[in-house]
Design a protein around this nucleic acid. Structure first.
Ligand SMILES: [Zn+2]
Ligand SMILES: [Zn+2]
Ligand SMILES: [Zn+2]
Ligand SMILES: [Zn+2]
Lengths: 128, 128
DNA sequence: TGCTAATTGCTAATCATTCTCGTTTAGCAG
DNA sequence: CTGCTAAACGAGAATGATTAGCAATTAGCA
């Protein structure tokens, strides 16, 4: 009664690209890399497969305000991100304040949270 | 040499709507409320004026992963937001864990942070 | 080798947001 | 108060990211 996700060439290539990425990739960024290994892949297929891998828990989504969604391999420990406002790069921040309980009314049900720290990365901070 | 922003009726109404809002509003949500006070306002004008108020520092933007941007009056005390995953509404959470220090490398320059707590609001939590 | 449903490529359709352009109007000089 | 002009407006086209529809292709299995 389960689904039977097919092991297609394009899905394999996509997973391979994410496995070899050193930073979260947008769907189009991933598309560019996939096409280097296998031309003639449709962008729509990228979106479909990213969603598939996401649902299978193989990818995690990383959102940066005002930008297209990016994805990275799932499986890292709970962590958050730092966004450089100059070069726009994203960095992983290990750990979490754990105290993310806030004054959420008791009638609310908390599922999780997301934290983004903004600023300048080492390189960009040095330039000024 | 400065700009001369005109005090139009639609800009006034928009500011009034945000002043009376108890939660961050998307441009379309604001549009609905504006039209209750003044019909025949174009959506494009909403976007124009939101951007204007934003640039004048009268509004602040709040981003929710995968959703349209929301805006609220600038100048409130430091706070964060709760997003209901059922009805999609945004709620203000007062205060902050303050312990948001993380292990950001000392060479990085921190400007600020954003925290979003996900879950179900009181109403939606009750329905199940 | 053959069958069939999952997947693909392509295109059309959404959604949020911006842009264009002809018309209206706030703000100001006369 | 009257006119002028550039800012702002309304309507709708354009853009960029993402999703949906559909006929053709193909992975997985008998
Ligand atoms: Zn940087
Ligand atoms: Zn955390
Ligand atoms: Zn709710
Ligand atoms: Zn805070």
């Amino acid at each position: 009664m389960e689904k039977s996700p097919r092991n297609t060439k394009q899905r394999r290539t996509l997973a391979q690209v994410f496995a070899g990425a050193d930073q979260p990739l947008s769907v189009e960024e991933a598309w560019v890399r996939v096409r280097r290994l296998q031309p003639r892949v449709a962008l729509g297929t990228m979106y479909r497969n990213v969603r598939g891998l996401l649902e299978q828990g193989e990818l995690a989504v990383v959102h940066f305000p005002g930008q297209a969604a990016r994805y990275e391999l799932e499986g890292k420990a709970h962590h958050h991100h730092f966004e450089c406002r100059s070069c726009n790069q994203a960095f992983d921040l290990s750990g979490c304040t754990d105290k993310v309980r806030f004054k959420v009314p008791r009638s609310f049900k908390v599922h999780g949270h997301e934290i983004i720290v903004y600023g300048l990365c080492a390189k960009c901070a040095a330039k000024r």
